[in-house]
């Protein structure tokens, strides 16, 4: 028990003193997962919107499929992206494997389904009476859609937050695509919070792992606080 408490205090010290190794990994994690979230947002929200407003055969099936992909295992995304970007694969000429860019791609793929699906749910969740009111007051299609998004904005924002959380917390794809490498240059390294925790724990550096774990939790906490504040406004 003493060991755990000691490790915890050393972890806090690593954070408070802004240990460069810890900060570098945290910064890389944030940048990669934020980038993935931004890209996925730009795709998922319009896509969810399109699916929601259009009636077509197989729509239910498609939504079912998207919802099934919420549980998309991270290692499968890793495998899928790996076979595409590895040098022997179709996109191999880009030389993307073991780069942060590739990790952004993998995380984007990973969170697209859940963000698209939650966007559809968010729009479907708008009170039907509000929908009818908008229509009956003579709104044209564009105005109708703009108001719909406005009504659903908090639920859509929640979709973005869920996407980000899944991206920053995943380890399977990050280790397969990034390779958990550490180099002397920030942008050629691919070590992020989750992969570093896994490695450092196996190497017996419990304090270091714990510091990274605390940061990971803190990021999740901050994100949720921001979401809550926005929703209460």
């Amino acid at each position: 028990m003493n060991e755990i408490i000691e490790a915890f205090f050393q972890a806090v010290e690593l954070i408070v003193t802004l240990d460069p190794a810890v900060m570098e990994i945290a910064a890389r994690s944030l940048i990669i997962s934020l980038s993935a979230t931004i890209i996925a947002t730009a795709i998922a929200i319009p896509l969810g919107f399109l699916i929601y407003v259009h009636e077509f055969t197989g729509k239910k099936m498609l939504i079912n499929l998207i919802q099934t992909l919420y549980a998309l295992p991270t290692v499968i995304v890793g495998l899928f992206v790996f076979v595409f970007i590895s040098r022997a694969g179709p996109l191999g000429f880009l030389g993307l494997l073991f780069t942060p860019t590739a990790m952004v791609i993998a995380q984007t793929v990973l969170i697209l389904p859940i963000m698209t699906g939650l966007t559809i749910s968010a729009l479907s969740g708008v009170d039907p009476t509000i929908r009818d009111t908008i229509r009956s007051l003579g709104a044209n299609t564009r105005q109708y859609l703009a108001l719909l998004v406005r009504e659903a904005r908090f639920a859509i924002l929640a979709a973005v937050v869920v996407g980000f959380s899944r991206a920053i917390a995943e380890v399977g794809a990050a280790i397969m695509i990034g390779g958990n490498t550490k180099t002397s240059a920030f942008w050629t390294s691919t070590r992020v919070l989750t992969t570093a925790i896994s490695l450092e724990t196996s190497m017996g550096n419990i304090e270091f792992s714990m510091a990274l774990g605390i940061i990971l939790l803190a990021i999740a906490l901050v994100v949720n606080l921001v979401l809550m504040t926005v929703q209460q406004r």
Binding site: S86, R87, A88, G89, G92, G179, N180, T181, K182, T188
Partner: peptide, 17 residues
């Protein structure tokens, strides 16, 4: 940039370039 893996996996990375 070092990717640390077992010899089997390392050889696989090598074969794939």
């Amino acid at each position: 940039q070092i990717v640390s893996a077992g010899t089997g996996k390392a050889i696989e990375y090598g074969q794939r370039g």
